[in-house]
């Protein structure tokens, strides 16, 4: 018996059963989306990093805070997360300070209010930065199983063809198994980059969050000093 089966990937995919085809299509879609999010997150995290660097430099260069605030308010669509946090905190602080005349407001109350505002903005910014990361996580954990399902289904299909023959040869099941294994391969293709990217990005975002939190602490200290003065 000579083997005329061509192991071309296209013929393998075309010969697969409908369930396996659907699984492969699904995995291809998921893979595409996950790669899209990988690139998106890559750009957005890099930009957030750069903006945070720029703002920290600007902030600690001893510039006047109200001019910083004005700058942040003027182009609030293009500013980074840390600047937003600063803006929210400073706005709340100035509001509370302007009320100082009418109600007796303690310095610690003003700082607490500013801190609450900053925390709220921080949460929102974190939510923005972590958007789509959960998709990467679930792609990484689920798509191998989906691929495995396609493979198992394909192998079941391949073995069914053995039922009708008396002499079972490898040549009868091998093409079916090869077809089925393509599903696992695609699943892994989708999962591996997603897992790597998820780990990398969640680490990056953690670091950014740490920077934001320490900035919040330091900024509260500065505000407290101003309030007492």
């Amino acid at each position: 018996m000579n083997v005329t089966q061509d192991l071309d990937i296209i013929t393998l995919i075309l010969h697969a059963s409908i369930v396996v085809k659907v699984v492969m299509l699904l995995l291809l879609l998921v893979s595409f989306m996950s790669w899209m999010f990988i690139f998106q997150k890559w750009f957005s995290i890099r930009r957030a990093d750069r903006q945070t660097d720029d703002f920290e430099k600007e902030f600690w260069s001893g510039k006047d805070m109200s001019s910083l605030y004005q700058g942040a308010v003027n182009n609030r669509h293009s500013i980074g997360s840390m600047e937003r946090i600063f803006e929210a905190g400073f706005r709340e602080f100035s509001k509370l300070r302007s009320q100082k005349g009418t109600h007796q407001t303690e310095a610690s109350d003003m700082v607490d209010g500013a801190r609450r505002a900053m925390r709220a903005t921080f949460q929102r910014e974190m939510d923005f930065l972590e958007r789509h990361l959960s998709f990467l996580a679930s792609t990484g954990s689920v798509s191998p199983y989906v691929g495995l399902f396609g493979t198992v289904w394909g192998i079941m299909h391949a073995f069914r063809s053995l039922a009708n023959v008396q002499q079972a040869t490898l040549a009868q099941v091998a093409p079916g198994i090869a077809e089925a294994l393509v599903a696992t391969a695609i699943g892994l293709f989708a999962a591996i980059p997603a897992v790597v990217a998820y780990n990398r990005y969640s680490h990056d975002i953690d670091r950014l969050a740490n920077r934001f939190e320490s900035f919040m602490e330091e900024f509260s200290n500065i505000l407290h000093r101003q309030a007492v003065r």
Binding site: W35, M36, F37, F39, Q40, F43, S44
Partner: peptide, 9 residues
């Protein structure tokens, strides 16, 4: 960078 990511993907 939605378009850029799409093209890259």
């Amino acid at each position: 960078a939605l378009l850029r990511s799409f093209i890259l993907a």
